[in-house]
Simulated assay, not measured.
Amino acid sequence: MDEANPWKTNSSREIYSNPWIKVREDKVTTPANTDGIYSVVEFQNSAVGIVPLDSAGYTWLVGQWRYPLQEYSWEIIEGGCPINEEPLDCAIRELKEEAGLVAQNYQEILNMSLSNSSTDDRATVYLATDIEIGEAEPEETEDLKLIRLPLSEAIEYAMTGKIHDAISVAALLKLKILGY
């Protein structure tokens, strides 16, 4: 299979930038050899998700208001990982910050593109096991609710739409397929 890039970037300019995203507009030659414009949102962080799993088969979900969607969302533990930081280091920090949990073992279960049509947003997700429970240390901008429930129930939340966050759904369904 030919996997060569059929697009040609003729020029690129930054339209907008802040600490979270950059927006650029590229003048391109399309695969059909026509002129076009392609706008891309570049994220300043990648996403990291963690599914903690204790020895009794329980996990933790975080609930919070998601401003862009204007709705409440139940999710696995997630955070933004600066581009220069290793995703595992970020996962260890986020697990402690959001849930007060420390895990002895981490296994990467997903590395995925989140919206490959107009963004470069990526996520890495870990299964965290051998859990020790401590105190959460959320960031001052976070108003988080934390629940502990059987992993099977969290998977059911993903199956029925109670969890609709893409990273969470993908991670929980992957664990179901893996037999957890």
Rank of each mutant, 00 (worst) to 15 (best):
E132Q: 13
L172W: 00
Y72I: 04
W7F: 06
E98H: 14
Y38D: 03
I77D: 01
N45A: 08
D54F: 00
A4G: 13
E140V: 10
I163K: 08
A99Y: 00
C90L: 08
D130Y: 00
I21L: 10
I15P: 05
G134F: 12
T119C: 00
P87E: 08
Y16G: 06
S39W: 08
P68F: 12
E135L: 11
A158M: 06
A123Y: 09
L175Y: 13
E132T: 02
L173D: 00
K27W: 11
W7Q: 06
Q104G: 13
M112G: 04
P52F: 00
V169I: 15
L178N: 13
G57D: 06
D121M: 12
D35V: 11
I147Q: 11
G80E: 02
Y58D: 02
A99C: 03
I177C: 02
R66M: 14
T160L: 10
S46P: 01
L88I: 11
Q64D: 10
E135D: 13
G79T: 03
T59M: 09
I131D: 00
R13A: 08
E137M: 13
I21Q: 08
S113H: 14
W20R: 07
L144G: 02
E25C: 10
E142A: 12
E71L: 12
T34Q: 15
E14V: 06
W65S: 05
I21S: 07
G49W: 05
P82S: 03
I76E: 03
M159D: 15
E85A: 10
W60L: 11
I163A: 13
V28Q: 07
S12L: 11
S117H: 04
E108T: 11
D121W: 13
P19K: 12
A56N: 14
K174P: 08
E156H: 15
S115N: 15
S152V: 10
E139A: 05
A170P: 07
E75P: 06
I83K: 15
K162P: 03
E94H: 10
L173K: 12
P52I: 02
I21A: 08
E142M: 12
D89S: 15
E108C: 14
P68Q: 08
Y16N: 05
D165W: 11
A47Q: 14
I109A: 12
T124M: 05
D120K: 06
E71N: 12
E135W: 03
Y58A: 04
K145N: 12
T59W: 08
A136V: 03
Y38Q: 04
Y180N: 07
G179V: 10
Q107H: 09
I131F: 04
S39R: 15
V51A: 05
Q44T: 07
Q104D: 00
